[in-house]
């Protein structure tokens, strides 16, 4: 089966500064694929090259087997894009905007589909309002509807939940899952790493224009850290026993907590046996798996750059 999106050796410079460097990746049909990275990593530039907003300098992009430059009239019909910045046509209402947007793609008018999107995105009470009367959340919902109005087979969402409330985020991800189940491939970028962790089957991480990771989400999570074992004590432990220190344990919370960072191939049993033998006053045991945030920080090098925002 042909890939939904195939990017080969893609590069782009802005005034000599590389924004994307020799990027290659494939997204298979039916996937929800996450593209992550810090600000300036090259995610939006990549997405804009896929969508046709930014010119490709080097390399190629195929969407369902069609070259997105040579066969742009096909690839753009197959693709729906929700841009990171809110872009709306101030002259028209939501109702008119959706009709116009459907026509831009040459799609036959489908009132049932339009109504479905309007209802699912809770736009019905706002259909005939002018754009300047809409809140930021409503504008985001309209942008989702615009991206979907022509029934794309590849949906690209660039930071779809930036600045939207919890309920809308929940509804939006629910809708994306449904659309994905109905056969649409989804490529998304988000700064909410827990969302990417929950939504995406595979994740690519970009940093400074380069691909630094591309794996199944669980594999990515297991890639660097195994897990951490937390022991909470009933009373403070003053000194860290040498045997435990040798096993990588550290004391924290003024001696009320001990943390073991366990490599993937190491059992927690060894540490627990030693703790029992020393008769430490354990009140509670907790294990935590590494989250995407830790993996992300490690791979992008941000962990060593204190204070830098994601």
């Amino acid at each position: 089966m042909v890939s939904a999106l195939s990017i080969k050796n893609l590069s782009k410079n802005y005034n000599g500064d590389p924004a994307v460097k020799d990027l290659s990746l494939q997204i298979e049909q039916g996937e929800i694929f996450g593209l992550l990275g810090p600000n300036g990593a090259g995610k939006s530039t990549t997405i804009n090259m896929v969508a046709g907003v930014t010119r490709i300098q080097q390399g190629s992009i195929e969407i369902f087997g069609y070259d997105n430059r040579r066969d742009y009239r096909i690839t753009r019909r197959l693709t729906g894009v929700m841009h990171q910045e809110i872009v709306i046509d101030h002259f028209f209402t939501i109702d008119r905007t959706l009709r116009i947007h459907s026509g831009y793609y040459g799609a036959p008018y489908d009132e049932a589909w339009r109504q479905l999107l309007i209802e699912r995105l809770d736009l019905t009470p706002h259909l005939h309002k002018q754009m300047n009367k809409l809140s930021g959340g409503l504008k985001r919902r309209l942008m989702v509807a615009k991206a979907l109005i022509h029934k794309p087979r590849l949906l690209i969402l660039d930071e779809p939940t930036a600045g939207v409330d919890v309920e809308l985020r929940h509804n939006l991800w629910h809708l994306v899952r449904e659309i994905n189940k109905a056969g649409t491939t989804v490529l998304l970028t988000t700064h909410y790493l827990e969302e990417a962790e929950q939504m995406c089957g595979r994740i690519a991480i970009m940093n400074q224009g380069e691909l630094v990771a591309l794996e199944r989400t669980p594999d990515l999570l297991n890639r660097i850290y195994g897990r951490q074992l937390f022991l909470h004590f009933e009373r403070p432990v003053d000194n860290l026993p040498e045997q435990l220190e040798a096993m990588g344990a550290k004391l924290s919370e003024n001696g009320l907590q001990m943390v073991f960072t366990l490599p993937r191939d190491r059992s927690a049993g060894d540490a627990l046996r030693e703790v029992c033998r020393l008769d430490l006053p354990v009140r509670e045991i907790e294990t935590r798996k590494a989250g995407l945030e830790e993996v992300f920080l490690e791979l992008t090098g941000l962990k060593n750059r204190q204070g830098r925002a994601l």
Binding site: Y104, Y105, G106, A107, A112, K151, R153
Partner: peptide, 19 residues
Amino acid sequence: MIGEQPPREKADFIPWLPF
């Protein structure tokens, strides 16, 4: 439900509609 919609085939295209 979106899943209950008819299967979404490659959408038809009206070449002059964008214009």
